[in-house]
Design a protein around this nucleic acid. Sequence first.
DNA 1: GAGTCACAAATTGGATACAATTTTGCCACC
DNA 2: GGTGGCAAAATTGTATCCAATTTGTGACTC
Lengths: 246, 246
Amino acid sequence: MTRKNAAAEVVRTLRERILSGALQEGTALRQEKIATELGVSRIPVREALTQLEAEGLVKIVSHIGAIVAEWSLEEIRQTFEMRAVLETWILGAALPFMTEADLLKAEAVIEEMETADLEGWGQMNWRFHEALYSPSRKDHVIAMLRKTHENIDRFLHMHMKLTDGRKKAQTDHRQLLELCRAKDFHRSEAVLRNHILDVSDRLVESVELGRKIAAAQRPRRRQRRKITPEAQQTGDLSGDLPTKPT
Amino acid sequence: MTRKNAAAEVVRTLRERILSGALQEGTALRQEKIATELGVSRIPVREALTQLEAEGLVKIVSHIGAIVAEWSLEEIRQTFEMRAVLETWILGAALPFMTEADLLKAEAVIEEMETADLEGWGQMNWRFHEALYSPSRKDHVIAMLRKTHENIDRFLHMHMKLTDGRKKAQTDHRQLLELCRAKDFHRSEAVLRNHILDVSDRLVESVELGRKIAAAQRPRRRQRRKITPEAQQTGDLSGDLPTKPT
DNA sequence: GAGTCACAAATTGGATACAATTTTGCCACC
DNA sequence: GGTGGCAAAATTGTATCCAATTTGTGACTC
């Protein structure tokens, strides 16, 4: 299968690496290096970086370079607050239209999550939430929320790796599901709100801890072009793209 | 004064043209044409288009081209709903910290808007809202809202050009300001909510009307590359950028 | 020895050139 | 007259090359 778009493929690869934590925040993304490792020229790489910057995953400084974006704890907190506000609202808007079929779909996702590994967990988590919101028919809002989820997914990933918050999430999800089934507007919104804000608090702690650990692991190596190549990664990306057959 | 970044300048120019309505929705954005008219190569133009796509102002289809993004009425409606939800929330969060200085700043913007022309109106409108939200200290949320405002600014622009909704907006703004001064949480949020949703309803009507007018004005010219170059614009952009001195 | 200036190396930004893809105009054919 | 297919034209995607910018290094000065 031949790809249509080198740039799109680079975006996919880099995004995956960032979301999974393979490329940690602060890591320098050198165009040339990525280009050679992925078997393309720098042009599609630059385009990919631009797109990822728009997504909030990468930060580009003109003439200096690109790094995996570092979100402040405050930014993360506020993003979760926004989620709490928007998602409780959209849940309320969805409840009147929610059918048993919707609930069963959400329930199936919960079951799936029981045995899911860490990698796929974040995406499934979103699929659960989405199942509850989609009856609202507010597709554009949902699309926006999906982007938000994706952006903070890497922090969720880090959190779930450090602590085992998945159990708590599962019970929250089941409780939320039952309240939705009972069409209990007030309590379902309250549970959702608490679920989001609770995860936020714990997650922020995890991120803080994770950053301290990461900082302790690399006290050596001094700055270079104002951008520290952290663990001199950029990861070995070779093999992710088929090298051009000339 | 020599610019640092050709791409950034192209973004600025194109964004301005789109927001002001000089480039109408659906207009094809041909890379080569824009490049020559702005005196740069296609590389920065492509980068600009990518960025604008992320902002939601442009839509790019691989191997086909870019057009000024066409938002469905439903998308516009939902965006305003999100605004209503988020902005009432953040207003409530800002109220306890709001000082007379903040109120005076907002009041000054209202005064400024009395005599503002259509072009600058949208930006001032945002400055007013921002003044009320900034005491919340939720900078990241505010930044996000700014982007949202900017995205729908072009529809607001179209609306204000067709109907004279500015008078109504001004009275709404003054009323909101006084309720904030009185720290009346409940009523200020209600007024803000109604203000946003009311504008939304009227604006959607205007956009619908505006599109009908636009459609009637160009029944000729058949499709070309699946993208209709609407009023064969791309506008005369020459002169916006200093042509490179060789 | 510390600070400073100049120059070299590394890296990104942009322009030109070429390849790939899509559209369209044209012509045969039904 | 309409339709399908093929080739040319137009346009986008990518590679390569050159320019601009930043950072690192070392010599020189005080």
